[in-house]
Design a protein around this nucleic acid. Structure first.
Lengths: 359, 359
DNA sequence: CTGAAAGCGCTAACAG
DNA sequence: CTGTTAGCGCTTTCAG
């Protein structure tokens, strides 16, 4: 029923419905309006009604920028991740978004696209924007950036990576990978291969690689007897990259493949499997392949992927909770480790009882 | 070399490095500092140096909130999409993020999770935050929300959906789908099936469905002779949902399947294929399946998916550009249509020359 | 219970 | 070329 400017869509400027306009309309002072909105003082039922009516009539919406300036917080959370197109990151992000929403927090998303050099600049942008905190997912925290954030008093939470003195929630990658190798060994696989991105840029990859090595050692297998390939190209295209990599296995000997190849990602596993199929190499009979992340599709491909499952939503949620905790200022740093699970399907066969034994 | 508060991480409040602190340090007026930062007046080399030194020394970072309040814009863009975990949306988002970054815009991301009712509230939050514009990707624009945004003067850009009088960039879903059906018919497929989410909530699905019907008509096939299933459950889990749906085809007759099933998404196609495999039905020999979206994995599964490819990054980029254009205030509304491509692989066989003929 | 006044950090006239 | 002033929209003492 309100009369808007009849020109319909206009330039701006018509959004001059400020708190004092409302106050005028209601015949009270701006501070009174503020009080009824924020419940920050007790107001007589009568004036409260008048104010509410004015708000309604004018379609008043508080300006969060102005609010943030007066108060200590902006209710803005920065989330920095490596690649929103990756299922892992997307799930984490979705979960953080969901939690933030419940708190009237809003998230400023930064996708680093695995480009570490952009980090500093992007973080500065977030700081300018007065975010109340920053959650990093994945990657390998940059000490300089972390220190900077600490100096300006912005809490930092790390997801699936870690840094001394900073709260984090990680999956138990190292343990899981070690267990995976042992379980595979127990299932009869004797020669191993590893395919993944270079581990330097990602803490979680590093942890997995370490677990792989530990597992090998525990099983009495020498690392030199394994074919381990790290390829930068996998950052950009896991499927095509892995597909191309398959040749490196063949190049070595002739027709000699490891019994099982462990990978850092389901897409890499799938790329390998596609290449194997193309070459007539049967998976898992001739060679087994294990993925990582339990992507939604992994159980619908053929052979269905044996992989590692983890609750990314829980990771996201936990990160958000740590952020809120950090805000309330206990000052303590917390490190949470979340379990992962070996999911046996077709691409690598392992008897259930073996998996359970290593649980 | 600067001495920070030695306690390291502190609560806030130490971030009191405002423009006037810098000004004092440099022995000039705040406005002068502002001018050197923004290049909004010519400054003598001498004072400029002093100011820059002070900024450096104090680690001054402008407060974007305050800037936004003084100026007309916040350099904040709201992006609203249905499901960040979907490859389609993730790609669009990634592209918008990338473009925004170049402009020092920052994006406030909202994931609706296909829940239409949350829309209004979320949009209000964005408005409170003073976003300079909102880009909607997918879904079915809510007239009320669009009007509200127009009233408060916030430009709206629609991606892969449309609304009267609002700029949009869409894929040419209807045309493509119609063409797909014709091409399939030409390739010898005579009986058709369709599997997808109910089309009411998504403009792009509606367009595809319309195209499907038009194609059928053009080929002289009656809609009643087709098995078309719409399932709400597909919104939440396309793979599992499609897998479950497969039975509905069997239930009808006995062992009678359409020659080809057209779907709204690669995941749905893959779910169907997995179910078929489980039942011993060969794809594409016994029945062909066509996906949609050309997900990265689609060419690495077996059978490789015949599907529809589209450039989501271009869509994202175009949306961003329309947004910027809208800001500069030409006031005109633009509708862009982006082409899609039929990608023939293994799950549905079509001779290249047929596809080309319909191009 | 309500209002007046101050000021968050910044920029945009306008003087000088 | 540089400084003074005013004020964006809001919240918050502090009086009344």
């Amino acid at each position: 029923m309100t009369a808007y400017n009849r020109s319909g869509i206009e330039k701006k400027k018509n959004k001059n419905v400020t708190i004092s306009v409302v106050a005028k309309e209601a015949g009270v002072a701006p501070s009174t309006v503020s009080h009824v909105i924020n419940g920050t003082a007790s107001i007589s039922e009568e004036t409260r009604k008048k104010v509410l009516a004015a708000i309604e009539k004018l379609h008043y919406t508080p300006n969060a920028l102005a609010q943030a300036m007066r108060q200590a917080n902006s209710r803005l959370l920065g989330v920095v991740l490596q690649d929103i197109s990756g299922e892992f990151y997307a799930r984490c992000a979705a979960s953080i978004l969901e939690e933030a929403e419940k708190d009237n927090y809003v998230v400023l998303l930064c996708d680093m696209s695995y480009q570490r050099k952009k980090m500093k600049q992007r973080i500065e942008e977030l700081v300018k924007r007065q975010v109340d905190g920053v959650v990093f997912i994945g990657g390998n925290p940059d000490g300089e950036v972390i220190r900077y954030l600490s100096q300006v008093g912005i809490p930092v939470i790390l997801g699936d990576c870690s840094y001394k003195g900073i709260s984090s929630v990680e999956f138990d990658n190292e343990t899981t990978m070690e267990r995976l190798v042992c379980v595979l060994f127990e299932a009869g696989y004797r020669s191993f291969g590893y395919v993944g991105e270079p581990v330097g840029l990602q803490d979680n990859l590093k942890a997995r690689w370490n677990g792989y090595k530990k597992g090998l050692e525990a099983c009495g297998i020498r690392l030199e007897d394994c074919v381990n390939v790290f390829d930068e190209a996998l950052y950009k295209s896991k499927l095509a990259g892995a597909y191309a990599i398959f040749d490196s296995f063949d190049a070595k000997g002739s027709g000699e493949y490891p019994d099982v190849i462990v990978t850092s990602n389901d897409k890499i596993a799938q790329g390998l499997i596609a290449a194997a199929r193309q070459k007539g190499i049967e998976i898992p009979q001739k060679m087994a392949v294990v993925g990582f992340d339990n992507s939604e599709i992994s159980q619908y491909v053929s052979p269905a992927l044996t992989t590692i499952a983890q609750d990314e939503r829980l990771l996201g949620k936990s990160c958000y909770e740590l952020f809120r905790e950090a805000l309330s200022g206990s000052g303590k740093t917390t490190h949470i480790f979340l379990p992962q699970k070996i999911v046996v399907r077709e691409s690598a066969l392992i008897a259930d009882e073996i998996v359970e034994r290593y649980h």
